[in-house]
Nucleic acid binder design. Structure first.
Lengths: 137, 137
DNA sequence: TTAAATGCAAAAAATTTGCAGACGT
DNA sequence: ACGTCTGCAAATTTTTTGCATTTAA
């Protein structure tokens, strides 16, 4: 089981490794990106007594610790992903699916330049490419 | 009054030019980017009887006609802007303010290439740069 | 004149909160 | 044993809907 990895992660961030949390993390991990309802549906399969409130509370807690990252989407509810190195998203306007794509360096560089230009303290960039995925067309 | 411009816009899209709609458009125009509550607050100053339901219905209608564009944000409620040529956003993580920045061609090109690579039908790209604005730091 | 839009109030959906009991460490 | 976490139910907040009336064209 690679659950041990998430277990470590939680400990590292001083969060108790409850079964609910481990399921939430593994759900998001296996889906790649998931909104609240999707996380709830998937975790319920293994933790049938989990409550939606618990999912909300944990997503919030994990976001605060930067263990998760929000992916706000036009037209769809926000999804959540495990934090990883900066990357871009292909978002399907039909089904709302999200796919990761690597980000090239020149985009990162010019984003930082744009921020600097406007006296913005650069934190991170988010590049979402909206279109129609191969399944939907 | 440059209201005549918005009046034209609405006619062009076969939407009745009600005072409420004109106020909503001019509110978003003057704020640049605004969420539902901000639109409601500002329009209420000139159309004191406007209801929040009317704001919701109109934002939805204007989005469907592509006269407005949603700007989904991490941590903040979605904002709305008048549709214009593709551009990027600087988003302040502290206050949620949004500033437009021009997008360079190489970013557009490589975004299209990324989409093509994954067999995505490219529609549009959204580049949000998160940081801290000069006022907030 | 007429289809579409408004505003209200009510309904539905989404999210948050408080708290007693359970559980991880 | 302690403090955190869970699950429930209730509260709150956000968004949508239905409908009688008004209004733009």
């Amino acid at each position: 089981m690679q659950n041990s990895k998430n277990l470590e992660l939680l400990k590292e961030y001083n969060l108790k490794a409850t079964p609910q949390r481990l399921e939430i993390l593994s759900a998001i991990e296996s889906l790649g990106h998931a909104n609240i309802d999707e996380v709830y549906e998937v975790t319920k399969k293994r933790q049938s007594t989990i409550s939606l409130a618990t999912v909300y509370k944990n997503i919030t807690a994990l976001l605060e610790k930067n263990l998760l990252k929000e992916v706000a989407l036009n037209n769809f509810k926000s999804k959540y992903e495990i934090s990883k190195h900066s990357h871009s998203h292909l978002v399907c306007k039909e089904c709302g699916s999200v796919v990761d794509v690597d980000l090239n360096d020149s985009i990162c560089q010019s984003s930082k330049a744009m921020a600097k230009d406007k006296l913005f303290d650069f934190k991170e960039l988010e590049l979402n490419i909206y279109g129609v995925c191969s399944k939907c067309k």
